[in-house]
Design a protein around this nucleic acid. Sequence first.
RNA 1: GGCGCCGUAGCACAAUUGGUUAGUGCACCGGACUGUCGAUCCGGAGGUUGCGGGUUCGAGUCCCGUCGGCGUCGCCA
Length: 588
Amino acid sequence: MLRTHTCGELSEKLIGETATLCGWVDTYRDHGGGLFVDLRDRYGLTQVVFNPPDTPPAVIEASKTLRDEYVVQVTGTVAARPEGMANAKMQTGEIELRVTEFVLLNKSLTPPVSPSAPEPPGEDLRLKYRFLDLRRPEMQRTLLLRASIIKGMRDYFAENGFIDIETPVLGRSTPEGARDYLVPSRVHRGTFYALPQSPQLYKQILMIAGYDRYVQVARCFRDEDLRADRQPEFTQLDLEMTFVDENDVIGVIDGLVAKLAKAELGLEVPIPLPRLTYDEAMERFGHDAPDLRFGLELIDCTDLASEAEFRVFSAVAASGGRVRGLNVKQGTSHYSRRGIDSLTSFVADYGAKGLAWFRVEEDGTLNSTIAKNFTPELLAKFGERMGAEPGDLLLYVADKYEVTCKALYALRSKIGREMRLYDPDAMHFSWVVEFPMFDYDEETKSWQAMHHPFTAPLPANLDLLDTDPGKCRAQAYDLVINGSEAGGGTIRIHDAEVQKKVFNLLGIDATTAVERFGFLLDALQFGAPPHGGIALGIDRWVMLFGKLENIRDGIAFPKTQKATDLMTEAPGEVDLKQLRELHIKLDE
RNA sequence: GGCGCCGUAGCACAAUUGGUUAGUGCACCGGACUGUCGAUCCGGAGGUUGCGGGUUCGAGUCCCGUCGGCGUCGCCA
């Protein structure tokens, strides 16, 4: 070892001892007569002092060449800092290392990303010089959190009898769902592997094979456009269980949530976690992953709206649309007339044609430019329905149900954030259950699987597959943390007949089904047990547990929004020779 | 694919209504200094204002295009 201690380790207990530290120059302060260096490694900072009389003159002289990010090995005596010179801001601020000798292990160019700067530079630079960015204590804290979360998960599942089994990365493309990343086959001209969007089919096969509790930390790939909480390759804690129902899977994850919330955040999370159905979530919050850290629920007023002279309301109500609103408590002081205008243009991005609003006056009456279209009695009913009190701001979107959901969900999130309706440190865990099996694609006039085509319907809904697929609910469940989908799973179909029926509904004919999933259909006929599972988005857990603003900050080497790596410059061009071997000709 | 914000020295930012030689701090280079901790003080060097075009007597600033970063809608079973 080139060192006897780390830079976070020396303390008053070690005063008088000789120690050797290795690390990077975080900052240096040159006083002419002597030099102070804050030496950094991932454990902390220690002030090392090149000063007479402890440090020989030649060593002091040599130390003058030190610059930011130089790598050094220093040996000296651990000493208490002189009277009044302790630094309360440093963990090692009571002591310092008085250097007697040092070795310059390596120099550094002037770093474009300074690990010691109070604020990091632009993200493009951080990604290009990721090796410097990752030296920042903030990044190190995050990656340690990530490692701890993953270890916590692995330990938990090992303790609960799960077997870690790896599944292939080179698999077969299944055109459903997200776009695949493809890998051309050299051996088989014109054919391609696909990188897994998830290990879904393999884990079902493992259940059929009798490995009744499987778990894996699995890398997954989806070639879709990115967001602040989405990467093209991401990591899932994937698991599957045999002879279980929905409650069993949820129960296992409840235990994991409680364990990790306690271990990583010191939070006591009561379990079982609260559950709400998909329909309830859409009705109350307009979204299938609502942020339950605050209220501001959507309130339906369609029946009242149908009585209004106001054409916008009555026409929507008459045509089967919905009129729903939010009561922004004490919102009139937060949103001026101009503020409301900006909310109006905000909801327009979500397809809402307008935003109707009322201020609640001191006497409790509703006032607005549109108030004249309502009778006082009807306004009073609106006020009562909304729980209106003086100072409140009532906002309404009148439109098709889907538009009211999207617009009001977005509006609720925006207002919650702007009015600070929740503690940013709060953590709220919940389940959303009973998702629809299918949703209808207007463009292709066909049913689409809401989750994936292997999701089992609720037992009581089996008949609906034939009579009314839109009403059929699934044994599907999503874990929601602070309004973010942090995991999702289903009980799978283990009956080949039901599976065929679902494929049929999805427009996957028998030939196609056999072509794409023949192995699964085969397996289902050889004693497939009831099974189900879930996958947790580890990157999102890290983001949420670490209070990060985007998913990239929780990943050592993330991709940009255009799915490139600024450090390695992937993706890159390849030699013509490589293309030829793969039987690929570029279309240009 | 659409929309929005951003791009000025190694880094973070400034530059009046379109107007002189594009400034400031940190970093860097040289010097001073025996206890600092965002050290301080003196001096210096460092610029194709992302790139291309246009408007104008004159463009960092306005317009068009393009590249890149971020956010968002579509998309993400």
